[in-house]
Amino acid sequence: MSRTPTDLKYTASHEWIRREADGALTVGITDHAQDALGDLVFVELPEVGRTLAAGEACTVVESVKAASDVYAPVAGVVTAQNEAVKTSPELINQNAYDAWLFRLQPADKKASDALLDAAAYAKEIG
């Protein structure tokens, strides 16, 4: 069954979020999401410096069978993207919580508090 680490936050739309020491948020897709998508073969990430609204579609991940949007969990500015997943999308299948997609400096430092915790997300995916 899919893993849901307890030290991360989640969205109902299957993103995971880790708060870094400097207040930035690292964003990826959950193990449940990668499992549902199957073998990933293409990732398109938001440019560094792009301002995102909460819930804005900002990343495209494509598996052999389907394309999916990934949404910004909170509003903020993109500060980094993970080059490794662009060249090797399969890293997400191998470990979805290692293979982050992008980092975001949130507009509101407290915004991520409202995201789901592991138990709530686990309930969400039933």
Partner: peptide, 8 residues
């Protein structure tokens, strides 16, 4: 992300 298309 939108997974609904995969499950619906």
């Amino acid at each position: 992300m939108a997974l609904s298309c995969l499950f619906s």
